[in-house]
Amino acid sequence: MKFLNILIILFLFSLTSCATFSNKITFENQVKLNKNTLSKINGFYETNSVKSIVKYQYSKPEEIENDTVNRYPLYSTLQTNDGYATGSVVKLENYSTKIEVQDKSKIVITYLNKDKIIDKVILKYKLKNGYLYLKNNNFKTKLIPGLCGNFEVDRTRIGLNSENNLIMNHSHYLYGAILFIIGDTKKSSFAGEYKRKI
């Protein structure tokens, strides 16, 4: 019984270090936001990234300029907190994502086709290190994690760069095990820059 308790404590402790943001997968030209400058993030942004950096667990970071395939669409990544949504080759010039800070803890994210609202979500956030850390179903499980199953942790944060474009960091961690014996772990990180439209 004591051994099982130790394993459970180690398992819970591992959750605190899961899906951390890598300094190698961030943009250097971040403008740190604070409570007085938070409204600067309000605006309309393009759906596909103009620049992104992707890193999978054992690979080197890969840079992607002008992601025409839209591998990491802005709205669906923010709305679902899943940075690995299926991309689309649809022309996206008429689409945009509107971001508006509502108060000290909530942000409204709206997906538009020209002026028509397609979808909208209100998320909670926390301001930390000049970024807005989004809170949206970032912990998911299947079966009983550790005993027979897995868990996934997704973390997303957004901010601004010196060109007044939106920057986003996303980190994903998957842990699967049977009887606390590690069967599979995967970690990936993504950073994207999205051009401001208005």
Rank of each mutant, 00 (worst) to 15 (best):
T47S: 07
T47G: 01
N48M: 04
S49T: 12
K51D: 13
K51M: 08
S52A: 13
V54A: 10
K55Y: 07
Y58D: 15
K60W: 11
K60E: 13
E63V: 11
E63T: 15
E63S: 11
I64Y: 05
E65G: 01
D67K: 02
D67Y: 04
T68Y: 15
V69A: 14
N70H: 08
N70V: 13
Y72I: 15
Y72S: 09
P73G: 08
P73F: 07
P73M: 08
Y75P: 04
Y75N: 01
S76W: 10
S76K: 11
S76G: 05
T77K: 02
Q79W: 03
N81A: 07
N81D: 03
G83R: 07
Y84M: 03
T86L: 15
T86S: 14
T86D: 12
G87V: 13
G87Y: 10
S88L: 09
V89G: 04
V89F: 12
V90I: 13
K91Y: 05
N94R: 10
Y95H: 06
K98V: 03
K98E: 15
E100A: 14
E100M: 12
V101R: 10
V101L: 11
D103C: 08
K104W: 00
K104C: 03
K106V: 05
I107Y: 09
I107N: 12
I109W: 05
Y111K: 06
Y111G: 06
L112R: 12
K114T: 13
D115Q: 14
K116V: 12
K116T: 14
K116I: 10
I117Q: 12
I117G: 01
I118T: 07
I118H: 03
I118V: 09
D119A: 12
V121I: 15
V121F: 07
L123H: 07
L123M: 08
K124G: 06
K124D: 05
Y125K: 08
L127D: 00
K128I: 05
N129H: 03
N129C: 00
Y131V: 04
Y133H: 13
Y133L: 09
L134M: 02
K135H: 02
N138Y: 09
K140H: 06
T141E: 09
K142N: 10
L143F: 12
I144W: 02
G146Q: 03
L147V: 14
C148V: 07
C148R: 04
G149T: 02
G149I: 06
N150W: 11
V153G: 00
R155N: 12
T156C: 09
T156I: 11
I158F: 08
I158C: 07
G159D: 04
G159M: 03
L160Q: 05
E163I: 00
E163P: 00
N165F: 10
N165I: 04
N165K: 09
L166N: 07
L166A: 03
I167E: 00
